[in-house]
Simulated scan of single mutants.
Amino acid sequence: MSDTLQLILEDSDGTQLQTSCTRFAVLWQGKEVWIQQDGRGQLLIGVDVEEGDDEYASLLLRPLATNLVSLQLEMEPADAGDDDHVHGPDCGHAH
């Protein structure tokens, strides 16, 4: 399976540009929200966190109605002593 994303970009007058890439980011609320495929047909969405950040971003996806969802970016305090987080290959933290 290809990890190439086919994008359609549309400006305010409706003109569309088609392109492709392996990964792209949207600057949203001052953070880079990265979107890419995982090679199995699923989309990975992550928010970059930089060393020294005192907050981290959580993306919340909530169903609204049939075929509609809400995506919300929330900032939460980073707690270096938080033992509840289990580091794994998909957690996005540098180990």
Results as ranks from 00 to 15, higher is better:
D3E: 14
T4P: 00
L5K: 04
L5E: 05
L7N: 07
L7A: 06
L7M: 09
I8T: 11
I8D: 08
I8P: 03
I8N: 11
I8C: 14
E10N: 05
D11R: 14
S12D: 15
S12K: 14
S12A: 13
D13W: 15
D13N: 14
G14I: 07
G14F: 11
T15F: 06
T15A: 06
Q16F: 03
Q16N: 09
T19G: 01
S20F: 08
S20E: 11
C21F: 14
C21R: 04
C21L: 12
F24R: 08
F24P: 02
A25E: 11
A25I: 01
A25R: 10
V26S: 09
V26Y: 12
L27K: 12
L27E: 13
W28A: 12
Q29V: 03
Q29S: 10
G30W: 09
E32L: 12
V33H: 10
V33P: 08
V33F: 09
V33T: 07
W34N: 06
I35N: 02
I35T: 15
Q36R: 14
Q36G: 05
Q36Y: 10
Q36N: 08
Q36I: 02
G39L: 08
G39T: 07
G39F: 11
G39N: 10
Q42G: 05
Q42Y: 04
Q42R: 09
G46W: 05
G46Y: 05
V47Y: 05
V47R: 06
D48T: 03
D48H: 14
D48C: 05
V49I: 05
E50P: 02
E51Q: 15
E51N: 10
D53N: 15
D53H: 09
D53F: 10
D54A: 00
D54Y: 00
E55S: 01
E55T: 09
Y56D: 00
S58H: 03
L60I: 11
L60A: 08
L60S: 11
L61M: 07
L61K: 08
L61S: 07
R62W: 03
R62S: 11
P63Q: 09
L64C: 09
A65I: 03
A65C: 08
A65S: 15
N67I: 01
N67Y: 07
L68W: 15
L68Y: 15
V69L: 15
L71T: 14
L71D: 09
E74G: 00
M75T: 04
M75A: 11
E76Q: 13
E76L: 12
P77I: 03
A78Q: 05
A78D: 04
D79F: 00
A80C: 06
G81W: 01
G81V: 03
D82L: 00
D82S: 00
D84G: 00
V86Q: 06
V86R: 04
V86K: 00
H87P: 03
G88S: 10
G88C: 12
P89A: 13
C91K: 12
H93D: 04
A94E: 10
H95S: 07
H95A: 09
H95F: 04
